[in-house]
Write a protein that binds this DNA or RNA. Structure first.
Lengths: 216, 216
DNA sequence: CTTAAGTAACTGACCGGTCAGTTATTTATA
DNA sequence: TATAAATAACTGACCGGTCAGTTACTTAAG
């Protein structure tokens, strides 16, 4: 019988397939905890259960690891949002509500929610990553909201207004809370995020909807 | 006649009084441009027109310089806001409008507006600074808005709602735009900030005001 | 089946460069 | 001259990335 290393005691195993994801996972955890610059490749290696040299067998550089995180792990989330919108039946207000509540919920509980704060923190020193993130994530997500709002304006559900500005305004409290979660939250007063978002939607939707025609 | 250095050519002059502010100014510029960690003390020294050693005659460490920036330059802005509120005559909605527009305007054009993004970026690695900032700036500013909103609720101008959440919601788009300005702006679509804030106030105030009693 | 030759995944000591902070020395000024 | 202010050379720790060598696994000949 052939005895593989896995059935013996051995210093390491060959696991070519599993390494990249394990390395990305370890990197995300450490980037989240310490930020990109302050994360040491030695620590990533240790957390991923490999040696430092192995990291460079799979990724050219620290920066490439960061970029790969955005590319391979975040983009799929936007795809999901797109699908959800296309399948939706109902008013624009209901769709916005569903999107914000849904996106919020799924994003808030996902490890990846640390990425926006990371990108913002490091944008100055890694312009390429920031540019990539804006093109691939920011503009796309915002575009979804812009379209829904424009639709609401067209069908007289919402007041006439600049839909691009409105989309940013709709997202701002969500993004703001997300960034806060990964920066000042430990030092600040607690916040009930669900209740916060519910109030946001109440105020925002009430503010953007056409006045009832019987109102003064 | 005694000829002072200033009247000769000389390698340097004694300027004990002027140094601290010049150093803080130089540091703020570089922190804004590169972030805290990526800023080199040698560059701060060069920009301030002194040698690296001189920095340490006036400040114990790089971190202390950062902390001092917040302490001596940002706090006075909160004082101003407090005064403006106390002097104001008018409705709560008008006061909120004035505060957001005014705070926005003055902050947006001030060098110090780079500090929030800096703090958020470095909060993980410099908890002491983050804690200090939250206590001295964040809670105080938010408190001002909380009070105005509560007043509006009490005098039936606003709907009953959680004033702490509402205060955060009012500030979120402003802070969000401020952070964006110092991170993703160079890579993102342009934004007319004045118009953006005007729309925010329209939607928010319209959303939080008590419904007209003749409305359905 | 056994095993020796071959391959590629993996390791970890090391290197070159960087940078916050220190100190021996020089210079401006009272 | 005395000394406070400022300099510039220096130190030592740190870290991203490299590479010569090691080991797990594969394969093919016997």
């Amino acid at each position: 019988m052939i005895l593989k290393c896995s059935e013996h005691q051995c210093r390491w195993r060959r696991r070519k397939e599993a390494r990249p994801e394990e390395i990305l996972d370890a990197a995300l955890d450490l980037f989240t905890e310490k930020g990109f610059s302050a994360t040491r490749m030695a620590d990533v290696a240790k957390k991923a259960g490999v040696s430092k040299g192995t990291l460079y067998l799979y990724f050219e550089s620290k920066e490439i690891i960061f970029k790969e995180l955005v590319k391979t792990m975040m983009s799929p989330m936007v795809d999901e949002a797109e699908v959800a919108i296309n399948e939706f039946q109902g008013s624009s207000a209901e769709l916005l509500d569903k999107m914000v509540t849904g996106w919020w919920e799924s994003f808030w509980h996902n490890k990846l929610s640390a990425i926006p704060k990371l990108i913002i923190s490091e944008a100055g020193n890694f312009p390429e990553i920031a540019e990539f993130y804006v093109e691939v994530i920011v503009k796309r997500v915002r575009g979804l909201f812009e379209d829904i709002i424009q639709q609401g304006i067209d069908n007289k559900e919402f007041k006439a207004c600049n839909n691009k500005e409105a989309a940013r305004l709709l997202m701002a409290p969500v993004i703001q809370a997300n960034i806060w979660k990964f920066s000042l939250k430990p030092y600040d007063e607690a916040l009930d995020e669900k209740s916060y978002i519910r109030l946001h939607l109440e105020i925002f939707l009430s503010g953007i909807k056409k006045d009832d025609k019987h109102a003064k």
